[in-house]
Measured scan of single mutants.
Amino acid sequence: VRQEELAAARAALHDLMTGKRVATVQKDGRRVEFTATSVSDLKKYIAELEVQTGM
């Protein structure tokens, strides 16, 4: 499950970095929206997932 969450989070980051205004991911069973202003929060979430998956 964590691998899927990590892939979704990375895709969301890619979307935001390429101009999409809002990206949505499932985080702990709930839907979370990230915007360009919350990229740093999304990067932290990705880092947490990488630690949890041993990457």
Rank of each mutant, 00 (worst) to 15 (best):
E4Y: 14
D15T: 06
S40F: 08
V51N: 11
A12V: 03
S38D: 14
A23M: 03
Q3F: 13
G29D: 05
F34T: 01
G19I: 02
S38N: 12
R30Y: 11
R30V: 10
A9Q: 01
F34R: 00
L49C: 02
D15N: 06
T35K: 05
L6F: 03
T24W: 10
K27E: 03
V32L: 11
D28N: 08
K27C: 10
F34E: 00
R30C: 11
G19D: 03
R21T: 15
K27L: 08
I46N: 01
A7L: 11
R2Y: 08
E4R: 08
F34A: 01
E4I: 13
H14G: 05
A11W: 07
D41G: 06
V1H: 13
K27R: 07
T53L: 09
K27T: 06
T53C: 08
T24F: 15
V32Q: 05
E48G: 04
R31D: 15
L13G: 00
E50I: 11
V51W: 14
R31H: 10
A12T: 02
A12R: 02
V25T: 04
H14D: 09
V32G: 01
T24G: 07
K43I: 15
T24H: 11
E33K: 09
D15W: 06
V25M: 05
H14W: 12
E4F: 11
L13R: 00
A12E: 02
A8W: 06
T37H: 12
M17P: 00
R30W: 03
L13H: 03
R21Y: 12
M17K: 07
A36D: 10
L42Q: 00
A36N: 10
T24D: 04
R30P: 02
R31G: 09
A47F: 08
D41L: 11
R2S: 10
G29M: 02
R21H: 15
M55E: 14
Q26Y: 15
D28I: 00
M55S: 13
L6W: 04
T35F: 08
R2G: 13
V32P: 02
E4V: 11
V22F: 10
V51G: 08
S38H: 11
K27M: 08
M17C: 11
D15Q: 12
M55C: 10
S40N: 12
V39P: 00
D41C: 14
M55R: 04
K20M: 06
V1G: 11
Q26N: 13
Q3Y: 13
L42N: 00
L49G: 01
V25N: 01
T37Q: 12
E50R: 03
M17I: 07
A9C: 08
T35M: 06
V25D: 01
K44E: 11
A47L: 13
M55D: 12
L49V: 03
V32I: 12
G19Y: 02
T24R: 04
K44C: 08
I46S: 00
A7T: 10
R21I: 15
D41V: 13
Q3N: 12
I46L: 04
E50P: 00
V32F: 06
M17D: 05
K43T: 06
E48W: 15
Q3S: 12
A9M: 09
E4W: 15
T18A: 04
V1S: 13
K27D: 03
T35W: 06
E48K: 06
S38E: 15
A47K: 12
K20E: 07
G54C: 09
T37V: 09
L49E: 00
V25Y: 01
R30G: 08
T18Y: 05
T18F: 04
I46K: 01
T24L: 07
H14N: 12
Y45F: 07
S38A: 07
V32Y: 07
V32W: 08
L16M: 02
V39Y: 06
F34N: 01
G54Y: 09
I46V: 04
T18Q: 08
T37N: 15
Q52I: 09
K27Y: 06
T35L: 04
V25L: 06
V22Y: 08
K44P: 01
A47N: 12
D28E: 10
K20V: 11
K43L: 11
Y45D: 01
K27H: 05
V39H: 03
V25G: 03
G29W: 01
Q3I: 14
E5S: 09
M55F: 12
V1C: 12
G29I: 00
K20Q: 11
F34Y: 07
E48P: 00
D15Y: 06
T35A: 05
I46F: 01
L6Q: 02
R21V: 15
V32D: 02
E48H: 11
V1D: 14
G19R: 02
H14S: 10
D15G: 06
S38T: 14
S38W: 02
S40G: 15
A23N: 03
L16F: 02
